[in-house]
Computed example of a mutant assay.
Amino acid sequence: MRGYVPGVFDLFHIGHLNILRAAREQCDWLIAGVVTDDKAYRAKAKYPVIPLAERVAILEHITLVDEVVVEHQPSKLDVWREHPFDVIFKGDDWRGTAKGRQLETDFSTVGVEVAYFPYTMQTSSTLLRAALESAAS
C-alpha cells in the first residue's frame, strides 16, 4: 500500500516525525508531499521559515520516507493523479473540519482512504515560530 503525507514541514519537529513514523507503519511505500512556499502562504498567511529546497532535503534524508514530491498542484487530487497513493495521512486536527470533510469527500470518489493521527499539541511549527519571534524581539 502507498501512503501520502502532505505538509509544509517547516521547522521540522517531533510532530512531523510522529506522523511520518505512524504513516510508515501503515504502508509499504511512503510519499512525503512538501507544499511550495506560495501554497503554504495561501493556506497559512505566512511564508515558511525554512526554504522549500531545504525542507525537501531534510525529508529526503529521513529513512521513513521513500519518496519526496513538491506539492505545487492546486488540489490533493491533482497530486494523487501524478503520484498515486492508497491512503492520505493527516493530523487529527483536520478531523471534522470543513477541510477534512472536503478531503474525505474528494478522495472517496477515487477510493483513497483518509487516515488521521494524533496531532502533537506540545510542539508545532506555529509554536516554534512564535518562540523564535519572541526571542528575536
Rank of each mutant, 00 (worst) to 15 (best):
residue 3 G to C: 11
residue 4 Y to P: 00
residue 4 Y to R: 00
residue 5 V to A: 02
residue 7 G to E: 00
residue 9 F to E: 00
residue 14 I to K: 10
residue 15 G to L: 09
residue 15 G to V: 10
residue 16 H to P: 02
residue 16 H to W: 06
residue 16 H to M: 06
residue 17 L to K: 02
residue 17 L to C: 02
residue 18 N to V: 05
residue 20 L to A: 10
residue 21 R to S: 09
residue 22 A to Y: 10
residue 23 A to F: 00
residue 24 R to H: 08
residue 24 R to I: 08
residue 24 R to Y: 09
residue 24 R to L: 10
residue 25 E to F: 10
residue 27 C to N: 01
residue 29 W to P: 01
residue 30 L to K: 03
residue 30 L to H: 08
residue 31 I to W: 04
residue 33 G to I: 05
residue 34 V to Y: 04
residue 35 V to L: 10
residue 38 D to G: 04
residue 38 D to Q: 11
residue 38 D to R: 13
residue 39 K to R: 15
residue 39 K to F: 10
residue 41 Y to I: 13
residue 42 R to Q: 15
residue 42 R to D: 12
residue 42 R to H: 15
residue 45 A to G: 05
residue 46 K to H: 15
residue 46 K to Y: 13
residue 46 K to L: 14
residue 49 V to M: 10
residue 49 V to K: 13
residue 50 I to W: 04
residue 50 I to Y: 03
residue 50 I to F: 06
residue 51 P to Y: 04
residue 51 P to C: 09
residue 52 L to G: 07
residue 52 L to Y: 08
residue 53 A to N: 11
residue 53 A to V: 11
residue 56 V to L: 07
residue 59 L to I: 08
residue 60 E to N: 11
residue 60 E to W: 07
residue 61 H to L: 05
residue 61 H to W: 07
residue 61 H to A: 08
residue 64 L to K: 15
residue 64 L to Q: 15
residue 65 V to W: 12
residue 65 V to D: 13
residue 66 D to F: 06
residue 67 E to N: 03
residue 68 V to K: 01
residue 68 V to D: 09
residue 70 V to W: 00
residue 70 V to I: 08
residue 73 Q to G: 03
residue 74 P to L: 04
residue 77 L to G: 00
residue 78 D to N: 10
residue 78 D to L: 05
residue 78 D to G: 06
residue 80 W to C: 06
residue 86 D to W: 03
residue 86 D to K: 04
residue 86 D to G: 08
residue 87 V to Q: 02
residue 87 V to Y: 02
residue 87 V to I: 14
residue 88 I to Q: 00
residue 88 I to P: 01
residue 89 F to M: 05
residue 90 K to F: 07
residue 91 G to C: 11
residue 91 G to M: 12
residue 92 D to C: 14
residue 92 D to E: 14
residue 93 D to P: 15
residue 93 D to R: 11
residue 94 W to R: 07
residue 94 W to I: 09
residue 95 R to D: 10
residue 96 G to K: 14
residue 96 G to N: 13
residue 97 T to K: 00
residue 97 T to S: 09
residue 98 A to C: 02
residue 99 K to R: 13
residue 99 K to Q: 12
residue 101 R to W: 05
residue 101 R to S: 05
residue 102 Q to T: 03
residue 104 E to C: 10
residue 104 E to W: 08
residue 106 D to W: 06
residue 107 F to Q: 02
residue 107 F to N: 07
residue 108 S to N: 15
residue 108 S to P: 09
residue 109 T to S: 12
residue 109 T to R: 15
residue 111 G to K: 14
residue 111 G to T: 15
residue 112 V to D: 02
residue 113 E to G: 02
residue 113 E to K: 13
residue 113 E to V: 11
residue 113 E to S: 05
residue 118 P to C: 13
residue 119 Y to W: 15
residue 122 Q to M: 09
residue 122 Q to H: 12
residue 124 S to D: 03
residue 125 S to E: 06
residue 128 L to M: 12
residue 128 L to W: 03
residue 129 R to W: 01
residue 130 A to F: 00
residue 131 A to D: 13
residue 134 S to G: 06
residue 135 A to Y: 12
residue 136 A to L: 07
residue 137 S to M: 09
residue 137 S to V: 06
